[in-house]
């Protein structure tokens, strides 16, 4: 009941603040350093999505590590929720990034190092979900996909933090916070969007974890009931003879 109440309150708060923030992104004066300043507002959505997505993509291996250490299924549920949110926000990052690239750099896809590395991170996510879908046993699924996340931690780190910043790699991406592309108002709106998208993502994550826990409990209860039912009517296997084939089978 308390959970339902908090969900309702969160929905109301998001319902109020999201339209306000959206309007604010259009009201902020254009950032002069962009090629098409008026069309650069996509960055208000693009950059927070990328940052929040990265947080979830690094939380997932941590949760997987905790699962592998403790074998407590709640960590696996959290890892899946973090990966799902990270992937969803990653896809939004790619889509908003493509829109930004088209308006600012003239093409949907420029093979920019950050674009390419994020695409590869999404390939990791696809591999993770493909691996999960290949196991029917819950514990094996959790362990193997957790192992995959641990193995992917180093490549994640390389693709998100190292590769785009290598000195020999030239990127079209501006360093908007450091190079002064954003004035004070732009920065204010950007941070507001970052907080808002972060809060919405955290809320969705919480809901996903709750749904995952309920699903797990439900499956376990069903399994228990099934076992009880089976123990009440034990199977009896008797040898029978099939006269037309002349053989004996059971």
């Amino acid at each position: 009941m308390r959970a339902l109440k908090s969900t309702k309150w969160m929905a109301i708060l998001v319902g109020i603040f999201m339209p306000i923030a959206t309007v604010a992104t259009f009201m902020a004066p254009p950032a002069a350093k962009f090629q098409q300043p008026d069309l650069a507002r996509m960055v208000f959505w693009h950059l927070p999505c990328a940052l929040v997505s990265s947080v979830f993509l690094f939380l997932a291996p941590y949760f997987a590590f905790r699962f592998l250490r403790t074998t407590d299924i709640k960590w696996d549920i959290r890892a899946v929720a973090a990966m799902e949110l990270g992937t969803l926000l990653g896809i939004l990052t790619l889509l908003t990034g493509m829109l930004f690239a088209k308006t600012q750099w003239g093409a949907w896809w420029n093979w920019d190092p950050r674009q390419s590395s994020y695409l590869m991170v999404m390939l990791f996510a696809a591999g993770y979900f493909a691996l999960r879908s290949a196991f029917s046993d819950n514990e094996k699924r959790a362990a193997n996909s957790g192992g995959y996340l641990m193995a992917a931690l180093l490549p994640f780190f390389f693709l998100i933090f190292v590769y785009p910043r290598l000195p020999q790699v030239v990127s079209l991406h501006p360093n908007v916070i450091k190079d002064g592309s954003f004035d004070a108002t732009y920065k204010g709106v950007f941070y507001m969007m970052l907080v808002l998208i972060g809060v919405v993502a955290a809320w969705l994550y919480q809901l996903r974890v709750r749904a995952g826990t309920l699903e797990w409990d439900f499956e376990n209860q069903n399994a228990e009931l099934d076992n009880r039912h089976r123990s009440a009517t034990p199977r009896v296997v008797r040898t029978i003879s099939l006269p037309d084939q002349g053989g004996t089978t059971s």
Binding site: G127, A134, N144, G147, A151
Partner: peptide
Amino acid sequence: SISGALAASARNRSTLAAAVALPLLVP
């Protein structure tokens, strides 16, 4: 080897091992 070990007990293991290995090989 890690990808092979992870996919070894999966259903479509041969295809999956290659699919899982490729993202790990990107760096």
